[in-house]
């Protein structure tokens, strides 16, 4: 058990704090929702009902989609774009998809390579892009569900004020949808750009996200 925890600490730690903070969001979101219900002279709802509501769903999913967009873009952009001095960047002469030898695919695959790295055709293509494919799928899926739950929550608000609801396509044109979307995107892009740029001159001893403390500021693509 100790070995399992040690070897999976990163994945388990973040899964744990994800579940804990999601629970926290449900509790305070529920309290906030009922506060607004009372202000509108409406009946309060139970915690279970709130967790299974579009109000809670859109608040969760709008954040999910932006995180997966961020990482999808980061994984893709770092294939071609470089940042001199950043440990997040590849070395300056390695921009692009690199050679089969560099990537150990086809006849350059080793005994311990995944089977699809040796395969030709679609299997190698799928494995070669699987991280971006899955991250992008999660981004688009959660963004779509943000729109579906966002529309339901938006319409509930509209009906509450005796105003007309909108269809799904109509909702995609509302300021509500784009305000929820862009307020998340901007923070992700700033954070990701900061990681790439701040790590040029700043260090965290022991972190693979940082260069070694003694590495020169202009060393590019050197991970701790």
């Amino acid at each position: 058990v100790r070995r399992v925890l040690r070897e999976n600490g990163l994945g388990l730690f973040f899964l744990g704090i994800f579940l804990a903070t999601l629970l926290g969001q449900a509790l305070v979101g529920h309290a906030d929702f009922n506060h607004r219900q009372r202000a509108h002279h409406d009946e309060p709802v139970s915690l279970g009902r709130y967790v299974l509501s579009s109000d809670f769903g859109v608040d969760v999913l709008e954040n999910w989609q932006s995180e997966y967009l961020q990482f999808t873009l980061y994984v893709l952009a770092t294939v071609w774009l470089l940042q001199r001095g950043s440990p997040e960047s590849k070395e300056l002469d390695r921009a692009g998809r690199e050679s089969d030898a560099d990537q150990r695919v086809g006849r350059h695959a080793t005994k311990s390579s995944p089977r699809w790295a040796r395969a030709a055709g679609w299997r190698r293509a799928v494995l070669s892009n699987s991280l971006v494919l899955v991250m992008a799928t999660i981004w688009l899926g959660s963004w779509a569900v943000q729109s579906v739950t966002g529309r339901a929550a938006y319409n509930a608000e509209q009906f509450d004020h005796q105003e007309a609801g909108v269809g799904w396509l109509g909702y995609l044109g509302t300021a509500d949808f784009w305000n929820r979307t862009l307020q998340n995107w901007q923070s992700e892009f700033l954070a990701v750009g900061s990681m790439a740029v701040l790590s040029i001159y700043l260090r965290q001893r022991g972190s693979p996200e940082s260069k070694p403390v003694g590495a020169p500021h202009d060393a590019t693509g050197v991970e701790g």
Partner: peptide, 30 residues
């Protein structure tokens, strides 16, 4: 590697379950 695979699957299940569940919630207009 069994525990590693389990953590990998746990992440995928959490993500797919979350997206799937709220797709239904939104469709039903809950």
């Amino acid at each position: 590697m069994r525990a590693v695979r389990l953590v990998f699957v746990a992440y995928l299940v959490a993500i797919v379950a979350g997206i799937g569940a709220y797709f239904v919630v939104g469709l039903l207009g809950l």
